[in-house]
């Protein structure tokens, strides 16, 4: 399925670069999920696609639709706002769940205050 909207040359180049760059950055972040050791290190990898990757693709989409419909289209901002607000919440919640599980596991073996540093 090779098709694309008709855009002027400058816009096509900017949209193409933005989308390609965002996708590449997201892929690097996902690669980090595989390559990095330990849960706490992997959490950082997810943020890559959720911040810069998302922003680049949304900017490309905004530019593309603004030119196609010949009026500023900004509803992509809703997704950007929503993702930037919710991703940190989920990551903090996950990290807290992980640290809680690590501590309770450690406490069952040795009683300590639990630095919870585990790299596997």
């Amino acid at each position: 399925m090779m098709q694309a909207p008709d855009l002027p040359t400058w816009a096509a180049i900017i949209v193409g670069l933005l989308v390609l760059g965002g996708a590449a950055l997201t892929l690097v972040g996902a690669l980090g999920l595989i390559r990095l050791p330990g849960f706490y290190a992997r959490v950082h990898a997810t943020t890559l696609g959720a911040t810069a990757g998302m922003a680049a693709i949304l900017l490309g989409s905004m530019l593309c639709f603004s030119i196609i419909q010949t009026r500023p289209v900004v509803h992509e901002i809703l997704i950007a706002l929503f993702v930037t607000l919710t991703t940190p919440v989920t990551l903090i919640l996950l990290a807290r769940a992980a640290i809680y599980r690590d501590r309770s596991e450690k406490a069952s073996r040795v009683s300590s205050d639990g630095g919870a540093e585990r790299e596997e």
């Binding site: 399925m1 098709q3 096509a12 193409g16 989308v19 996708a23 997201t26 892929l27 996902a30």
Partner: peptide, 27 residues
């Protein structure tokens, strides 16, 4: 010509995103 370039870029980025989904699914 530019339309073809844009189509190529979008298809390539879709492949990259698909690979990223594969990595996430692996984890």
């Amino acid at each position: 010509m530019t339309s073809l370039l844009l189509a190529l870029a979008i298809t390539a980025s879709q492949i990259l995103l698909g690979l990223a989904m594969g990595c996430a699914a692996f984890r």
